[in-house]
Design a protein around this nucleic acid. Structure first.
Lengths: 152, 152
DNA sequence: GGCCAATACTTGCAAACGCAAGTACACGGC
DNA sequence: GCCGTGTACTTGCGTTTGCAAGTATTGGCC
């Protein structure tokens, strides 16, 4: 077992942790609300946006997805009425996505179950202090990245 | 802007950070070696395994992938000779994956470029102390998960 | 020794995604 | 006021992935 670079090891931990968490959260969210993780994140971003509305490009950037993925994710969500389209009177290119009542409700409920999952993750063997430290360091790591969810 | 749960915020940072890093590393590794991140991780696991050999199930567990994904990832890698199959004399069900010389070389080279990327990530505004702390906390978070790469 | 549950792997199928090309529109320079 | 460049979005196509079903094999139990 060779000595490994600390930066490398950290990155490996990050990659592993994420793929595991992604699976756990997806299973729970799917089971309870029929939502994928990305769908919930999309709703959460809309919920936080002023007027519950956002352009598709901005959603893509915040979700770290391509524009085409956003387009395709939205189609079924419009169909079931979580979300609706709106035009921009000044620029006919843009299509706003606006959150409807049922979508807003889903966003809140989904956030609650995601929060519960997150808390369960840290419930054992983690002090509030340690969690805060991890939070701060991760926040720093992603600080210069575009489109994060408001933190407070 | 409601007060947000610290555990939730931490998890959101984790998800975002990962999806961003995944893309960066994928671009670099693909460009330099023609490897995907998962392919490199697979080679790295083999490189660390005694005899450079591992069962497919164990690879799947370590990579946090399904068995079918591992099966399909390996096909082209066998074709180009990074890896070869071996049978277990005691159990005809298992198919070992064994690393060949070119695969071992690729694993080492890929690890070097991934290490460089990882170091670049932390090069600015990160002290060795902070990196060590982040590393320890992430390590704890994934500690009870199966199949991590040996830490050195 | 025959049967049944569990294990290792493969394959068919569908979902989620990115890239590149296509369409529609905006905006600035001339 | 037209034209070229850039932006917002959509669509076609290929890749990666998981799930579920299928095959082969092992091992325990009677």
């Amino acid at each position: 077992m060779g000595m490994k670079n600390p930066a490398l090891v950290t990155v490996l931990h990050l990659l592993r942790t994420q793929s595991h968490l992604q699976q756990r959260f997806a299973a729970e969210l799917g089971g309870v609300h029929g939502l994928s993780v990305n769908e919930l994140l999309l709703l959460m971003h809309l919920d936080q946006a002023p007027g519950g509305r956002l352009r598709r490009v901005d959603l893509a950037q915040r979700l770290d997805l391509s524009q085409s993925s956003v387009t395709r994710m939205l189609a079924p969500m419009e169909k079931v009425g979580w979300v609706e389209r709106a035009e921009d009177p000044r620029d006919a290119r843009v299509g706003y996505v606006v959150l409807r009542k049922s979508g807003r409700r889903l966003a809140r409920e989904g956030t609650r179950t995601l929060t519960a999952q997150a808390e369960a993750l840290f419930a054992e063997r983690w002090s509030a202090q340690e969690l805060a430290t991890l939070n701060a360091l991760l926040g720093r790591l992603s600080a210069h990245l575009p489109g994060q969810l408001a933190a407070g």
